[in-house]
């Protein structure tokens, strides 16, 4: 069964960045909040909250439509599959631009998108049940 990562309790986020560090640690083998498949928009302190931007698992993804080389293709159950060999590292990153929720981060080093595989490691390291891995379609 295909799984999808979902933000289920956005308002329980404390902004610790544990999820993004976990993603970067696991997949990119780096210690960085900027090298992950998701971001936490911080409106920190006494006047705001946090917003977690992770792949929404679209079934007809805008990012895939925007990709000129089909490096991004729809994944069964939602989200996209990324074929790095087909990516031509567009200067203007149309895939990132197409994702209006800003849930597709850009890898400045490789000049390609960070594509979420919906592995669930971010949810494993979330202390407040903000993120969960669910079965697609449920």
């Amino acid at each position: 069964m295909v799984k999808l990562i979902k933000v289920v309790n956005r308002d329980q986020c404390i902004g610790c960045l544990s999820c993004v560090f976990a993603c970067a640690r696991t997949w990119e083998h780096v210690v960085s909040p900027d090298m992950a498949c998701l971001t936490v928009r911080r409106y920190p302190g006494t006047e705001g909250a946090f917003s977690i931007r992770v792949c929404y698992g679209c079934t007809d993804p805008d990012c895939a439509h925007a990709c000129p080389t089909r490096a991004l293709t729809p994944r069964d159950g939602g989200g996209v599959i990324f074929d790095s060999a087909k990516c031509i590292h567009c200067e203007d990153a149309p895939c990132v631009e197409a994702c209006i929720s800003k849930s597709l981060p850009w890898n400045e080093k490789e000049k390609e998108p960070f594509v979420c595989t919906h592995c669930g490691i971010c949810a494993n390291f979330c202390p407040n049940d903000v993120l969960v891995l669910v079965e697609a379609g449920v």
């Binding site: 404390i14 902004g15 610790c16 960045l17 544990s18 560090f21 909040p33 920190p44 302190g45 006494t46 909250a49 390291f125 202390p127 407040n128």
Partner: peptide
């Protein structure tokens, strides 16, 4: 009304 955390801390001890 809210608890927040320092970057890299899962405790979230900052009580607002």
């Amino acid at each position: 009304s809210q608890k927040i955390a320092c970057a890299g801390c899962q405790v979230g001890c900052i009580h607002i």
